[in-house]
């Protein structure tokens, strides 16, 4: 049932990458519980604009949990308290009247802050550019059914491929490691015959790029998988490690 709640919102405000940031507290009153978290921020922004102030900058786009654009560290959790959901899929019914809700940007050396809650995740693109593809030119593909692929492998590849590249895994990790993100892509291709040909080159190139861009190392705490809005499994990292070991051994 729809009810209204009032709460305190502590939001990280930072004018630019090099500026000093701080928490700003806003009193939010009478917010319907069937409002999404981002709609609640829209309401805040509307109020700020009405007062002639600058709105809180945050990334968002599809608002249905698939584009990976939204982020936000809410009450100490990437994408907030719900599991298996992004911030845009989080509804205010998860919160209570009188709560204090803290909203921070992703914090990681590899994701510099642009403004307020908006960060630069270009590093993720760069890792993908290093090897996250099958080298295949448009045209001339064989018939799609010429290469049967077991349903089990296809389904597992699909699970890995569900990664939306939001960066919650990096934000959740105490080391700021991007292993879950990298392993999801490496796994998708490792599980499919199309990806086998370049498997060794791919895993080495993507990991080298990841190291170069300032992501931390993996210490198997599993925080990434626990916080992943798409439930990407930790076993992907095990597969990544195996792939990497095999690639190195055959060097």
């Amino acid at each position: 049932m729809e009810t209204n709640i009032s709460f305190k919102l502590k939001v990280w405000r930072q004018a630019g990458p090099k500026e000093k940031g701080h928490f700003e507290t806003y009193e939010m009153s009478d917010i319907p519980t069937d409002t999404s978290f981002l709609e609640m921020l829209d309401i805040l922004n509307e109020q700020l604009v009405e007062k002639g102030e600058e709105p809180v900058a945050f990334d968002h786009d599809c608002r249905e949990g698939i584009c990976g654009m939204c982020s936000l560290y809410i009450n100490g959790h990437p994408h907030g308290p719900a599991t298996g959901a992004t911030t845009c899929q989080l509804y205010m019914r998860r919160f209570h009247d009188g709560d204090t809700i803290t909203v921070e940007p992703w914090r990681s050396a590899a994701f510099p802050i642009i403004r307020d809650l908006m960060v630069n995740r270009n590093a993720f693109d760069q890792i993908q550019q290093a090897g996250g593809y099958v080298s295949f030119n448009t045209g001339g593909a064989q018939d799609a059914n010429a290469l049967p692929i077991s349903k089990v492998a296809a389904d597992e590849a699909m699970d890995s491929a569900s990664c939306i590249g939001c960066g919650a895994c990096v934000a959740a990790c105490k080391n700021g490691s991007a292993m879950l993100f990298v392993s999801a892509k490496v796994s998708q291709f490792a599980l499919l015959p199309q990806g086998k040909v370049e498997a060794k080159r791919r895993v080495k190139a993507m990991l080298a790029k990841m190291d170069e861009l300032g992501f931390g190392n993996c210490t198997n705490t599993g925080a990434c998988a626990a916080e992943c809005p798409k439930n990407i499994k930790l076993s992907n990292i095990a597969r990544l490690n195996r792939e990497f070991l095999c690639a190195k051994c055959s060097d």
Partner: peptide, 20 residues
Amino acid sequence: NIIDQCVAQGVPFAREYGGL
């Protein structure tokens, strides 16, 4: 051609138990 192209890229389309 699109389906062929996407499969070649490694798009994990849904499959039957026979692999098709």
